[in-house]
Design a protein around this nucleic acid. Structure first.
Lengths: 340, 340
DNA sequence: TTGTAAGCGTTATCAA
DNA sequence: TTGATAACGCTTACAA
C-alpha cells in the first residue's frame, strides 16, 4: 500500500471559516442544517463553500460521531458462484432497498479465502461500518465470530448451525423439502433419490433432512449423493451417479434448480423422459426452473423479503432496539409445474 | 440513522499507554512494527494490549494517514441483473485477487437508482476508499463524473463513450462482433439479423457497429431489433419480432449468450432448426453457451483478466504512477461450436 | 445566534 | 530509543 500526496489539498471547514469570516462552529452548524443560524451567516458560509469548493471529510466526521453511515453485506461464497446463486441478487436488492431508504450505504464484501476473512474482520473492526448482514455463513465461520465479538448490530440471512447469538432471517428449508418430496411419493414414485449439496450449510442439511423425513421408512441412503456446491455440474454428476446406482430410479429431489437442470440434461441424454420415466423437483424457483423442458416444479424462496427483513433487523438494533436471540422463518411456497 | 452508544467503550492507545507506562508515541511505534523500540518497551506494550483488549481504530488512523486501504468496485446495474451477467463474477474475481494480494479491501457498491448514485458519490467523497474501479458505466454516468472530479485513482472496465479522462480496460467489441458475424456470411446465410441490446453502453453500440461492418452492403436495418438489457427475455422477444419481420431469416447475431438462448428457444418453438434453418451466434462464452442445444458459437471475453488489469491500473496510480489518458483493449477469442 | 475550545484516536515531528 | 505535543478535520458543549 502506497501513498500519493500529490493530490491538491481539499478545502476544510477551516478554509470556509476563514473565507466567510464565520467561526468553525457556525460553519459546521450551517453544513448540518442545524437551527440557530442567521440567514446572514448561512449565506456567507454557502458562498464560501462554493468559493473554496468545500466537500465534507466524512472520515473526520466519523471519528467524532462514532458512526459511518455504512452497513456491510457480507457474502461468503467462492466468487464465481456469487453470480450463479439466483437468490443472492434478490437478497441484495431487498437489503439495499431498506438500507437506501434509511440513507445507509450498503457495502458488499465478498470473501472466499482465509486471507479475505482476516482482512474483512480487520475492516469491520476499523469502524467502516455500523452494522453487518451476513449471507450464507458456514459452520464455524470466522467472520460471524468476529461480528459477534465486535458486538455491532448484525443479522444472518439463513441459519448457520452453532451460530453465535446473532438473530437470523431464514426459510424453513426442512418443511419445504418435506413438502415437495411428498409430492414425489404421492404421485407413485417408489425409487426416489436426492442430489444433495452444500451440507456445510444449514440450507443443505435441512433440505436433506426434509427429504429423509418425507420418505420415512421408504428412505434408501444409497440413493443420496452429495456435493459441495449448488451448481449445474453438481446435478449432472450426481444424476449420473444415481443412474449408475439405480437405473430404475423414478424420482429425484435436486437440492436447487441449478442442480435439477444438470440432472435433467443427464436424464435426457440417458433416454429418460421427464416426468414420464422420472419425476424431478428442485428448489429456489430461479430462472433455471422456467428454462427447463419441461418446466420445473420447485420451492419459491422469498429472497427479496429475506434481504429486507435482515436489513430491518439491523436498523432496529441500530436504533437501540434489542437484539433478539432467535430468528424468523419466512414462508416458502411450492410451485407446481410439469417436471413432477 | 440513529446512534447507539451503549456499546462498551473500546480501549484506545491512551489506555495501552497508561497500563504499560509507555508513551503513546512509542505504543504507536510498537503497534506499527516500526524500528527504534526496545524489547522492554515492546513487551510491556504487547502485554498491555492483551490486558485491555486493544484493537486499532482505523477511522482515526485514516484521518491522519489520509488513506483507507479500501478500493471501491462500483457496479452499475439493475440489481437483479447483477447475477445474470456472467462476466461480472469473473471481473470481481480478478479484481479481488489483485487487490487482496496488495492488502487492499475491495468494497463492492451496487447502484441502480439516482438516490443510490448520490449516496455513493457522497461515500466516495467521504474518504472511505483510496481508489475506484467502475464497471459497466453508461453514457453520462454521474458516478464516473464524481470519480473524475475527485481525482482519486480509478479505472473503467469497459470503455464508456465520452468518458472523463479515466483509463479503461476493455475488449474490442467491434472487431469481435465483426469476426463472428462474418462467419454467418461465410456459411452462406443471406438473411442475417441481429438482436441488439444495451445500446446505451459501449459494448452494445460496438457490437452493433461490428455487425453492420461485417455485412457491408448486405446489411438490412429492418433486421435489427434492440432492447435495453442483455437478457434471456430480450432474445425471446427480439427473435419473435425478427421472425415476424422476416420469416425466412437464416442467421442471427445475438448481443449476448443469454440473448441467444432466448432466441434459440423461440426458434425451436417456431419449428426452425439450428443450425439447419438458422445459424446463430452469441457473445460472452458464458454458461448459457454450453447449456444451449446445440451449443453456441460465441466470443470469449477475458473477464477475469479485465478485472485484474483494472485493479493493477488503480494500484499503479496509487503508487504515484501516471494516469494514462487512453486505455487497453484485451484480445477476445471466437469459440466455434455447433450453432453456426 | 455565535464563537471558543475541548475532544475523537491516531500518527508524526522534534527534542531530549 | 523515548516522550511530549502538535496535527488530522470534524462535532459539540459551553459561554458569551
Amino acid at each position: 500500500m502506497a501513498r500519493d500526496r500529490s493530490l491538491p489539498r481539499r478545502a476544510t471547514i477551516h478554509d470556509v471559516a476563514a473565507v466567510s469570516g464565520i467561526s468553525r462552529g457556525t460553519v459546521s452548524r450551517v453544513l448540518n442544517g442545524e437551527p440557530y443560524v442567521s440567514d446572514r451567516a448561512r449565506e456567507a458560509v454557502e458562498a464560501a463553500v462554493r468559493e473554496v469548493g468545500y466537500v465534507r471529510n466524512t472520515a473526520a466526521r466519523n471519528l467524532v460521531t462514532q458512526r459511518s453511515g455504512a452497513i456491510a453485506l457480507i457474502v461468503h461464497e467462492p466468487h464465481s458462484l456469487v453470480l450463479e446463486d439466483p437468490n443472492i441478487g434478490n437478497i441484495l436488492l431487498g437489503t439495499n432497498a431498506v438500507l437506501s431508504e434509511a440513507d445507509y450505504q450498503m457495502v458488499t464484501l465478498i470473501l472466499d479465502s482465509v486471507r479475505d476473512s482476516e482482512r474483512v474482520a480487520e475492516y469491520l473492526r476499523g469502524g467502516f461500518v455500523d452494522g453487518a448482514i451476513i449471507l450464507s455463513a458456514r459452520v464455524g465461520d470466522p467472520i460471524a465470530l468476529a461480528v459477534a465479538e465486535l458486538g455491532i448490530p448484525a443479522a444472518f440471512v439463513g441459519h448457520p448451525p452453532n451460530a453465535p447469538e446473532i438473530p437470523f432471517i431464514g426459510i424453513d428449508n426442512l418443511s419445504a423439502a418435506r413438502e415437495i418430496t411428498t409430492r414425489l411419493v404421492d404421485t407413485g414414485r417408489t425409487k426416489i433419490g436426492m442430489v444433495a449439496a452444500a451440507l456445510d450449510r444449514d440450507s443443505g442439511q435441512d433440505r436433506l433432512a426434509g427429504f429423509i423425513e418425507a420418505l420415512g421408512k421408504q428412505f434408501n441412503p444409497s440413493l443420496v449423493v452429495d456435493y459441495p456446491l449448488y451448481a449445474y455440474d453438481t446435478g449432472a454428476e450426481g444424476m449420473r451417479e444415481l443412474l449408475r446406482r439405480e437405473p430404475a430410479i423414478d424420482g429425484v429431489f435436486a437440492a436447487s434448480d441449478a442442480v435439477a437442470a444438470g440432472a435433467m440434461d443427464v436424464l435426457r441424454d440417458a433416454g429418460r423422459s421427464v416426468p414420464g420415466d422420472v419425476g424431478i423437483v428442485g428448489f429456489d424457483d430461479s430462472s433455471w426452473a422456467i428454462r427447463c423442458h419441461p418446466m420445473l416444479s420447485t420451492v419459491r424462496q422469498p429472497a427479496y423479503e429475506l434481504g429486507r427483513q435482515a436489513a430491518l433487523q439491523v436498523l432496529n438494533q441500530l436504533r437501540g432496539g434489542p437484539r433478539p436471540s432467535g430468528g424468523t422463518l419466512l414462508q416458502t411456497e411450492v410451485v407446481w409445474r410439469d417436471s413432477a
